[in-house]
Design a protein around this nucleic acid. Structure first.
Lengths: 356, 356
DNA sequence: GCTTAGCACTCAGGTGCAAAGAGTGCTAAA
DNA sequence: TTTAGCACTCTTTGCACCTGAGTGCTAAGC
């Protein structure tokens, strides 16, 4: 059977209405739409066809129609009207992002929170670095009262520090010597190259500062390891409860536990080869628990060998147009922000063409 | 009417059973308890008395009894058997805490998560500082490639840093000069004392480094302000759904929104004058939304003019004995940890006397 | 005087059934 | 090709009814 223009129009109406009401859509409801100059009987026969073709489903004989996974797929790929962000919306997203986000792990949390807020759905935010971070510079600062501040500058321009209480008294010159030694031997080395022989070598040459070396080594290793780990945050889980399909507490809970745990950590893999905004409808999902749930996600650039991803999880009935619009606006804004760290330029509101 | 020993025993049994089952407790159920050598009729008359005295309530005529707020109060204050933490429990709490917690804001989050895990309830964790943090030392490190690392050491021994990209080329000596100037003029000043005249004064003397001054000022102000803010984190909100009284999604949602927002920020005030573990039963709560919910909270010390608080929120029917035991163990462990930052000693398991 | 057995009473929750309502598929006429 | 009409299906809702749990009271027993 051929998918005529009118069939598409009916399908789109069904999905649109279903997104709004979360109730099965009947033929009569559709006839009441503006631009629908057919009787309910005509719509009925079209709907019967669409059901036969697998785009719609019927919960039971005397109920209205509900989009099937295939129906959503078609909707997302072809039918969905571009959602046009209003000035208000871009503005509130912009000001939210503008607050400076200092470190990557903090950033991940904040972004998750913002995205969740903007979409009224639980959101995840991931930042993964593809390894290779090294220390590009060591500094030791004597900070009075028997303590030293260790400052590491990393190859990705992040800076971390640690306060070390000194067991013995050390002179400024001792620290100069030690930091020079560290800079000479350890900069540019990845964490895998740290080993016992390196430690021995440094200890031998360290002189008065040798008691600091183990602490420094441990902190450095820890820091570099944390850098390669992918950061991930989940926010706004409770928002799920606002949507009728999750009034079943058990279901919501099961879904959120999945989200909290690792099951989702393989989503970034799915993301890897795809570009732009991706929509996973219901059954297309990897994780069991997400079977009747959809995921929308987008990549964004953080530069310096890093990559971010933001996504939301929600009922298959979610308002894809709105969600994808907001998500990609976020991603765009974030990418720009990381491109010019100090003065983030926000993109123009995407002026999508309004179909129909 | 007098509250006899036997009445107390009955009341305790009712609360214990209700905590376990979340169902109204009938007279017959109580007779089945070991150590209860009375007939159901006797228990019934005792329960009728307890109801008249306001310690029990009846959802409807033919239902069992449920503890009233006053009943819980009495239970918490007098009747409750000390819960004895098993070795397993102390161990899992200990190892959880042992992971080093670096910065205060990170700490707050982690603690909230741990407490929530240990009690299977939503948890809040607050760390508030009573002001007065100043910068005790400035350092500027030239980090090659036209950038400078600014390191601030604060009066509470926390260290923060920021990477600044240089608009112009600066020499090591310029930075030395500037940092000496900053140390001379700005250390020990609280954020309220930063004003235009101070900025002007520094700008005049800064020489080549003057272009850095505004950035440094802003970052310093921001940092000190963040230090005085109280950090607060909420974790495990979804756990609420596991308890039957919150199967009503709307209720759970309303409660959690309250928790997420500020309504709870006045709880620390309640905490201020009290010591030890506090239990707020139902109607005793400040916030509207918490009316049929209980809050258990404890203070702990962070030293350095700071104070922490952990608490959980849950159904009035929660297992007070278990929750208070775990909470105070946490608080104890944390206090000890901050007393000797580097090698946390964990307290012995509290060996409470087992009554009855 | 306290305790207990017995009994009548109350009320929430489950079950079965009928009516209402929503929506469908099919057919015949326009 | 579209539409009006109609019979059919299935869920939802309301209602009456029954059952079981639990109570309060009373009178008898220790």
């Amino acid at each position: 059977m051929e998918l005529t223009e009118r069939k598409k129009k009916v399908l789109r109406s069904v999905v649109d209405l279903y997104i709004r009401t979360a109730e099965p859509v009947g033929s009569k409801l559709i006839t009441e739409l503006p631009d629908m100059n057919y009787s309910s009987a005509t719509i009925r026969s079209e709907m019967a066809d669409l059901t036969a073709m697998g785009y719609l489903e019927q919960p039971h004989t005397s109920a209205g129609r509900v989009p099937s996974a295939a129906g959503y797929r078609l909707y997302v790929d072809e039918l969905m009207a571009d959602y046009r962000l209003s000035l208000d919306e871009t503005k509130s997203i912009s000001t939210a992002i503008e607050e400076k986000m200092q470190q990557v792990d903090k950033m991940v949390e904040k972004v998750a929170k913002l995205v969740s807020q903007a979409t009224d759905l639980p959101a995840i935010s991931v930042a993964s670095r593809y390894g290779g971070v090294t220390v590009s510079r060591f500094d030791l600062i004597l900070a009075g009262a028997g303590s030293v501040i260790l400052v590491l500058m990393l190859s990705n321009d992040e800076v971390v520090n640690k306060l070390i209480k000194l067991p013995v008294q050390l002179e400024e010159t001792d620290l100069k010597l030690l930091s020079a030694l560290l800079n000479a031997t350890m900069t540019g080395l990845s964490v895998q190259e740290f080993d016992q022989s390196l430690l021995d070598r440094i200890m031998r040459s360290a002189g008065a500062g040798s008691c600091l070396v183990p602490v420094i080594m441990e902190f450095t290793t820890q820091t570099l390891e944390r850098q390669t780990r992918t950061n991930m945050a989940v926010a706004g889980q409770m928002r799920l409860l606002g949507h009728p399909e999750y009034r079943d507490v058990d279901k919501a809970q099961r879904l959120m536990t999945t989200l909290d745990e690792e099951a989702l950590s393989n989503l970034p893999a799915v993301m890897q080869n795809a570009n732009g905004t991706q929509v996973l409808v219901g059954a297309e999902n990897v994780a069991r628990e997400l079977k009747d749930t959809s995921v929308v996600m987008t990549k964004f650039d953080i530069g310096e060998g890093m990559q971010g991803m933001i996504g939301v999880v929600g009922p298959t009935r979610m308002d894809y147009a709105k969600v994808t619009a907001r998500l990609s606006y976020f991603a765009e804004s974030l990418s720009k922000m990381f491109a010019k760290p100090e003065q983030a330029q926000l993109p123009e509101a995407k002026s999508g063409k309004e179909e129909q």
